[in-house]
Design a protein around this nucleic acid. Structure first.
Lengths: 356, 356
DNA sequence: CTGAAAGCGCTTACAG
DNA sequence: CTGAAAGCGCTTACAG
């Protein structure tokens, strides 16, 4: 008996099949022609001995690990993963599906929401060559890490907004456009006093983009932007509730609310219920995300297809990894769709948000 | 200028510092005494050149990758990740925290909920030596893959229930015990007609364990188990709603429901609301998980601390990885706590679920 | 305390 | 079509 603790190596196969290790390698990888009979013999042995090339040894010479790393805010952090939302899991699902079919493994790593973190972790992983490419989703402005990666020409795709548009590959929905159209929808329904709840602090680019879309749509319609119609919310229902309370205590309360995310919209609904207000009659409501909550509460909401975003991100990264020549950065926009429900009082039709 | 595309290797450091590569290795890893001055010189160069050992090269000789793999059902699969529940992300958070501090990377991989899948993926990863250890969470009975891993003495920790208790290390809450005590709680409140909603199909061991705890508690109280008091639910609210409907159409409807998960309990609440029933007066309710939903709806629920489960799982795996001598399998039980809210009509006190 | 050398398990020119 | 050999970048006995 052989020592059973050692894994089977290419040498074992070569010896057992009576060929050289190069031939085994050529046969296994199909990287050079091998006589049919030899090939057959080799594969018989490979199957019998359950041979699988050692990834470290292989990686050492090929300089590839077949590992992709997804770098995110902490999975349980408020902004990204919260009740009623499965943002994170859908993203993972999309990424995983593509990587799986391309035979890449998924590493996952995170820091403290992007800001303060020194983030040497990512740089360390790059220097160690522990991964071949990187999918980053950091909603904040801080892009020093990303810049360092780019300097080293490390393959990177950004999921979501980033401050380096045109310099780095990215995939996202068009947050600006969605906000713009949501406001337009309300305008079309006759509203002029339209408030906005930011999905989170304005340091996050998603939030900034949505706010900007909101402002520009108002401006285009010749409607003055008012500070008191902006509420900086967070990922909790409560922020939608408080926003509504704040809005409705104004001398000139808004008649419509553009909510930055579905959980907030639920808060708006809860406020309305608690105060005997009708949505959409007393207050029209439209939101972002189109999560299960939007459906449950009958809230009109624009889809943010994170599954699709994940898939496209992984595909783009794979392209970077396999293409020889460098290409200029690509910014992929995943289309969104406005799902109209009872909350905004509009006709019951869906509107495609095309790329602007 | 040097070619900037090549990463800096141990040779570069050795040359620049005027020592041999062994000395650099000794200094960097602290694996043999090195003269203070030499050490200082070496680290100066390391810092200046941003040296980080190539992980493949290192792994090839040490036979370690510093990668741990988390194997789960698909992240977006119904049972594990659904609206109102952040099971998956909390688990990730706990695991990641420990791995981070032990300097391990997290690989993540999944199959189609454990059943049918041929799962060569996991075996392949093991044979390639792409990971040092494995955290598996597969709620189903199928343990052939796990058995194969164990045969190879591959370090494995199971998250959750498994059919191989005592043969394999695991971490979980005590589902049987929680169900048992939930029923006891209802019994103590005077209920005798107590129904149970299974959190999912009985092929899942969690479900089986909870059902068994339910049955045994009834039996101990001398109460006959009735088939019509069992409803096999799923991860959606709707199943709780339908269960309630089914229960209340019986000639002898239950007066209390033990719900298998919080989403279902919400369904029970929605049914009650829709039919003008009071919880707990017309129907008492107690659940599992204690998610944000339980709080929002005032549902008494027992905590399932997946963050803690993740941490303990990672810690246990780390022990397996660093301990020389093999030890018999450990089954860690994470304590749960019953959080009493208005839904069961009990006194407003929390009860510790100790290990049975 | 330090260096020369072997070797981890592969891939890949290079001969033949 | 096949094999002998170099080499990927480290760690680790082994001398000294």
């Amino acid at each position: 008996m052989k020592k059973s603790d050692r894994s089977v190596t290419i040498k074992d196969i070569a010896r057992e099949a009576g060929v050289s290790i190069s031939t085994v390698s050529f046969a296994f990888n199909g990287t050079a022609p091998v006589a049919p009979e030899t090939k057959e013999r080799i594969f018989e042995v490979i199957k019998r001995l359950n041979y699988q090339p050692n990834s470290a040894a292989r990686g050492l010479v090929t300089r590839r690990t077949n590992n992709i790393c997804l770098f995110t805010p902490q999975p349980a952090s408020g902004f990204f993963s919260f009740a009623g939302n499965s943002v994170f899991t859908h993203l993972l699902q999309g990424i995983g599906e593509i990587l799986d079919q391309k035979d890449y493994n998924l590493l996952i790593s995170w820091d403290n929401l992007g800001h303060k973190a020194k983030t040497p972790k990512l740089i360390k992983l790059m220097r160690e060559r522990a991964m071949d490419g990187l999918l980053i989703c950091l909603p904040s402005h801080d892009s020093s890490v990303i810049e360092e990666l780019l300097e080293h020409r490390f393959p990177v795709v950004i999921i979501g907004s980033n401050g380096l548009k045109n310099q780095v590959n990215s995939v996202d929905v068009d947050n600006y456009d969605i906000a713009f159209r949501n406001v337009q929808h309300m305008l079309a329904l006759g509203h002029t006093r339209i408030a906005f709840i930011s999905p989170g602090p304005l340091e996050y680019l998603v939030c900034e983009d949505r706010l900007e879309g909101y402002r520009d749509a108002l401006e285009e319609a010749g409607i003055r932007y008012r500070d008191e119609y902006l509420f900086i919310g967070d990922e909790h229902e409560g922020s939608g509730y408080r926003a509504t309370d704040a809005f409705l205590s104004l001398k000139e309360p808004p008649t419509a609310i553009v909510s930055g995310r579905d959980t907030q919209a639920v808060g708006v609904c809860e406020y309305a219920k608690a105060h005997g207000l009708s949505i959409p009659d007393d207050l029209a409501l439209i939101s972002f995300e189109n999560s299960e909550l939007a459906e449950k509460y009958g809230i009109s909401s624009v889809t943010t297809d994170l599954y699709e975003i994940g898939k496209e991100g992984a595909r783009l990264l794979y392209k970077l990894l396999t293409r020889k020549k460098e290409r200029s950065a690509q910014n992929i926009v995943i289309p969104s769709e406005l799902i109209i429900r009872s909350s905004c009082g509009g006709a019951n039709q869906n509107i495609n948000h095309s790329r602007r």
